[in-house]
Nucleic acid binder design. Structure first.
Length: 338
DNA sequence: TTTGCACG
DNA sequence: CGTGCAAAA
């Protein structure tokens, strides 16, 4: 899904250059899922090492992260914690959908159906398991990029970190972080060669455009449907916006209109999940120096990446590090004169 | 300099 | 997805 409030946003085009020096809290699951679903061979098979372990996410992560490092974007990856109990239905539905897609993928392959269709089913069967998360965390550690473990929802944790001033924006393809209170978020954080434009969404712009508060936005989301409820049949963004602008809260909407309370299950609880999310408050963020030997060992020896490719990446990393040293060096010189 | 394509 | 290389413009 996740929450379909994208239509309410007024995204502004931006660039990686504009993010230079900024600290970005990146939705790790969102990112890994993208890599896992997209980085595949033409028949839909993900990239794998000689032991058959999936490496698509490692390829995506190493290239994107070093690219962002080069642009001096400071990354913090935020991983989901334990899911809300209310999310069980969505988790089950996604798991069923994946299983179904996997079956269709095998079928379509055996029948030599349209390659695009085969690829589509393969993509829909992408799954993030524990190994994938652990491998991603290991690579981030070797690259000196910090990550934070969320208590529950990653987007809630990322939003909290921006509110606290530990990061400046949330990066995700989903808009949930706005509901969790992120003041600014970006979408499509990818290399400039891709045509999708980097979008910056500021909560205040959305709020001013529609004349609504965050509380009202959350109620709108609940009417449409979230990961925690299925929403009301026949109500989409437009109607939900109109209804909440008129009645302001779900309570008043229920009193003043014909909508049955039974149709909005658990809305008070869901509201509190968005407005007072459980977060991990005791995280530490520190950027370290990349450990080139570890990166090489992990990617080449453990996961059979080509030495040539990895060496090229390491050379890029070295260049970035040298540039950093040069900058701090000249800063010290300036300090001496002051 | 931009665009398309194959590769991992 | 991000990259390198080749072709096109």
């Amino acid at each position: 899904m996740v929450v379909n409030i994208g239509q309410l946003t007024e995204p502004k085009g931006t660039s990686l250059e504009a993010l230079s020096g900024k600290i970005v809290a990146i939705d790790a699951y969102n990112t890994l899922y993208q890599f896992l679903s997209i980085i595949r061979r033409p028949d839909g098979t993900p990239l794998q090492d000689s032991a058959g372990r999936i490496t698509s996410h490692l390829s995506g992560l190493i290239y994107r992260s070093t690219h962002l490092m080069e642009k001096e974007v400071k990354q913090i990856f935020v991983f989901d914690g334990k899911p809300q109990e209310l999310k069980a239905a969505v988790i089950k539905a996604r798991s069923d959908r994946r299983a179904d897609a996997k079956r269709r993928w095998e079928e379509a392959k055996a029948l030599h159906l349209d390659p695009d269709l085969i690829f589509k089913y393969a993509q829909a069967s992408a799954l993030i398991d524990e190994t994938i998360v652990e491998d991603a965390k290991a690579l981030l550690t070797y690259l000196g990029i910090p990550y934070v473990q969320a208590k529950e929802e990653g987007e809630a944790q990322a939003a909290y970190m921006v509110q606290k001033g530990d990061a400046e924006l949330v990066a995700s393809q989903d808009y949930d972080s706005l509901l969790f209170g992120a003041p600014v978020m970006i979408r499509n954080i990818s290399a400039p060669r891709r045509k999708a434009q980097l979008e910056l969404v500021a909560f205040t712009e959305l709020a001013e455009k529609h004349g609504i508060t965050r509380e009202e936005l959350v109620d709108i989301a609940i009417l449409i449907g979230t990961d925690f409820n299925s929403g009301i049949k026949g109500i989409g963004v437009k109607r939900a916006l109109k209804l909440i602008k008129k009645h302001h809260t779900i309570e008043r909407l229920l009193n003043e209109s014909a909508i049955e309370i039974a149709q909005i299950e658990n809305y008070k609880l869901i509201r509190s999940i968005f407005l007072q999310p459980a977060v991990n408050e005791s995280y530490e963020i520190a950027w370290g120096t990349p450990d080139e030997d570890k990166v090489k060992e992990f990617l080449c020896e453990e996961h059979n990446f080509s030495e040539e490719r990895v060496s090229k990446i390491l050379r890029k990393i070295e260049k970035i590090e040298q540039k950093k040293i040069a900058v701090t060096g000249s800063q010290k010189k300036i300090e001496q004169w002051l």
